[in-house]
Design a protein around this nucleic acid. Structure first.
Length: 776
DNA sequence: CAGTGAGCGAGCTTCCGCTTGACTT
């Protein structure tokens, strides 16, 4: 029996540490927190100094009972959870739940999983820091109070099942406000002047630093240049350098994997988890950019042997973020000499990204020579500017260049190009001069990753919660991640070539978005409601200000119950006030009057989502008409014309086999409905233009395709079929799709098998039953 | 993927942070 039981938070960490410590130590994991506040209302006794009621959740019962048993048998129990607020609380919960004895328990901490760091920690045990534990309790209690008092207000005033919280509500607010900035953005157009000098290999570009707002001024500029002479007025060459970025934290890894590999935040995290579990990288939930001494040395050795001494430059990075708790190292490869790893493609790519970033962070800077030439125009006062860059030493760029969120492509023009040798006073030969109309751009919509970046800047959320928070706000229907098509836009180009000016009108696509976060109407209404009634909570500085107080509690300078009491009294009053006095929030907006009937047209949120209403509710003679908004439309931006369009559908287009055919637009686009079946319209076909003949054709074609997929229909029930799907045969039974088990042959399956496989859910599974099963 | 949109009422929903698997496709 091992004399010592050492408990860490993560099982992968436990395995590594066990290898360092030898036979005297059993190393186990708590799998994170082992206790939480009970779910019920009485979790916090407000009248009794915010006394909390904790319980061990069902999925942790087994962990706790195993740890209890091992703790009883051990001589000494070492609590080695992370050295931050949550980690300290985990140690305390373990101490309390496992009934540990003070004289048999040691609290130790380390920031890196290396043998010397762990041995050093064991030599320097301490006791549980109750100030830090209290800071965590304050954090936990505050979040519960805010979340569980605010959410029910939304159920009453907006819609059931909604949620609000310190973190998620600010995330939604950022997206709602960004969307409004974009909506009200006024595009400004101006003409950008670009000249091309010289021919062939010695051709280069120069730009006019200022732009012309008016076409006439741009044209005048081109006119003046017809007879002008161009000379190099000045030449300046300056050295420039670029330094590598710090190794990854959770947030920067998510951003860079999104930019360079196109991974969603949750995909990145699950891939990283696999890399961590296979021992290839250090812990992936961290806010630290710090590397251990051991890692610094290993990186140095690898850089020297792979690239040479001149490429190495030791660097220690400091965290910028004030909220960082730095319980771990930065994310780095466990072994720097592994340039690549075994695993699937996605894992490999993420590993290589992590490897390159960590290696580059210990490399020398890249050196450039930047040349700027000013080119005078004999007929004008302005100068054209040409700039070029020559790399003198690649340094860290040999392995890695950080991506950029900036999608601006015109900015980069000519920036990295090389200039031919030039001399001051040299006359230049103009090949072409163009004035192109360019437009100012609204702020960019958030991607998952850029939202994480913003939240981190605001100190809101933690590495372990960025990905879940983004899922939550999408699951609640506050935000959708979508592609949206852009719009065509005309722009003008004036070109001076061979002494004459030509004018052109060109077409470009603008505003197309891929994988961006858009607020829904319900998100906007909930946000406005919270901003109006609970401004203090959804304030961008709320978290920062409570964090400051948590820090004071952690330093023993403040009583946690005092802090919570001071917060709770006015907050609770607001809650009660709002329940009593606030109107129901529906986001209603009047669009105007119907052009023919003069009836009022309005939009608002209803039980089933945003819709348009024509006519008044209390008009007894004429019941109002309703139509749901389509994907991409919102009650904030829909116009009267667009709203009226919605009433043109669904439209009856004819009769086929004695049943009506109706064209409508659903969640997945336009479709024909016939005899309770759905048939999607082919792309490009305007749903308002579909004729009866076209509809019949579409229906028949779909039937033909379905018939090809069909393997068998059961005699006992025609709703039970075997079909050929994307991944092979499967059973369709009513609305349920069932995978064929490996031990069954699709050709010999009987109806009895189908019923057995369908199980309790049966032919028409209840909505609730399915949802429940998924949750469990 | 339709249709719906008033109001009643039972019984439910909900937070943030720390961890992994167990699910289906």
């Amino acid at each position: 029996m091992a004399k010592n039981l050492l408990i860490v938070e993560s099982p992968a960490k436990a395995k590594t540490i066990e290898g360092y410590l030898g036979k005297d130590f059993t190393v186990k994991s708590s799998y994170g927190h082992i206790r939480d506040l009970v779910k019920s209302e009485d979790a916090i006794d407000i009248a009794n100094n915010f006394q909390q009621k904790y319980e061990v959740p069902a999925d942790k019962k087994q962990v706790v009972s195993e740890l209890k048993k091992l703790a009883k048998e051990a001589e000494t129990v070492w609590l080695a959870s992370d050295e931050d607020r949550e980690g300290e609380a985990i140690s305390w919960h373990l101490f309390d739940t496992l009934n540990l004895k003070e004289d048999k328990t040691r609290r130790i901490v380390f920031h890196e999983i290396t043998k010397p760091a762990i041995l050093k920690a064991i030599d320097n045990p301490r006791t549980i820091d109750y100030n830090l534990v209290n800071a965590q309790q304050a954090r936990r209690v505050l979040d519960r109070l805010v979340g569980f008092e605010l959410s029910p207000v939304l159920w009453k005033k907006v819609k059931p099942s909604l949620s609000a919280g310190r973190v998620q509500s600010v995330a939604v607010r950022l997206i709602v406000e960004r969307e409004r900035e974009i909506n009200k953005f006024q595009t400004e157009a101006a003409f950008k002047i670009v000249a091309i000098f010289g021919k062939g290999k010695s051709a280069f570009k120069a730009e006019l630093p200022q732009r012309f707002a008016q076409q006439a001024d741009a044209e005048k500029f081109l006119q003046d240049c017809i007879s002008a002479e161009f000379t190099v007025d000045s030449l300046e060459t300056k050295p420039a350098k670029r330094s590598p970025a710090a190794p990854f934290t959770t947030s920067t890894l998510q951003q860079e994997a999104s930019r360079k590999l196109g991974y969603s935040v949750s995909r990145t995290m699950s891939l990283a988890q696999r890399l961590y579990e296979s021992g290839n990288i250090t812990y992936m939930r961290t806010d630290s950019v710090n590397l251990s001494e051991m890692a610094l040395n290993a990186a140095a050795q690898e850089i020297r042997s792979a690239y040479g001494e001149q490429y190495h430059q030791q660097r220690k990075y400091k965290t910028k973020s004030a909220s960082a708790q730095e319980a771990h190292e930065a994310i780095r490869p466990t072994y720097f000499d592994r340039h690549t790893i075994d695993g699937d493609n996605a894992e490999k790519r993420l590993y290589e990204l992590i490897w390159k970033r960590a290696i580059a962070s210990q490399m020398s800077e890249a050196q450039f020579e930047k040349t700027t030439a000013k080119i005078g125009i004999s007929t004008r006062n302005e100068d054209l500017v040409a700039s070029g860059e020559v790399m003198k030493f690649d340094g860290f760029l040999k392995v890695y260049l950080e991506g950029s969120d900036d999608e601006d492509d015109n900015q980069q023009d000519g920036d990295n190009a090389m200039l031919p040798p030039l001399q001051k006073g040299q006359p230049l030969d103009l090949q072409e001069l163009s004035a192109t109309e360019r437009f100012s751009r609204p702020p960019a919509r958030y991607t998952e990753a850029s939202l994480v970046k913003k939240l981190e800047e605001l100190g809101i959320g933690r590495p372990s919660t960025y990905a879940p928070t983004i899922s939550t706000i999408q699951n609640r229907g506050y935000v959708v991640k979508e592609d949206r098509e852009g719009k065509a836009r005309n722009y003008r180009v004036l070109t001076l070539k061979e002494g004459s000016i030509s004018k052109q009108e060109k077409l470009e696509n603008t505003g197309a978005e891929r994988g961006k976060l858009f607020p829904t109407d319900i998100g906007a209404v909930v946000n406005d409601f919270l901003v109006q009634h609970f401004n203090g909570i959804v304030d961008f500085n709320f978290t920062a200000s409570v964090e400051k107080q948590f820090d004071e509690i952690a330093q023993g300078m403040k009583e946690w119950t005092d802090m919570i009491r001071k917060f709770y009294a006015p907050f609770h009053k607001d809650v009660e006030n709002t329940i009593e006095t606030a109107d129901k929030a529906r986001g209603e907006r009047e669009l105007g009057a119907h052009p023919e009937s003069g009836k009022k047209i309005s939009v608002r949120i209803g039980r089933y989502g945003p819709f348009v209403q024509v006519g008044d509710n209390d008009d007894a003679d004429n019941k109002p008409l309703y139509a749901s908004l389509r994907t991409g439309q919102s009650i904030e931006t829909i116009t009267l014309e667009e709203a009226l369009e919605l009433f043109k559908l669904p439209k009856k287009v004819g009769v086929y086999e004695d049943k009506e055919m109706t064209v409508a637009i659903g969640k997945f686009g336009p479709y024909i409905r016939h005899n309770s079946a759905f048939y999607s319209l082919p792309k490009g076909l305007d749903p308002l233009d579909v004729s009866g003949e076209q509809a019949i054709e579409i229906i028949n074609e779909k039937r033909k395709k379905d018939a090809e997929k069909l393997i068998k229909v059961f005699d006992e029930d025609p709703d039970a079929k075997i079909l050929n799907g994307r991944w092979g045969p499967y059973i369709e039974y009513g609305k349920q799709n069932i995978k064929i088990p490996k031990d069954k042959d699709p050709n010999t399956i009987t109806f009895e098998d189908v019923k057995a496989l369908a199980g309790e859910a049966g032919k028409e599974p209840k909505k609730g039953a399915k949802k429940f099963a998924k949750k469990k």
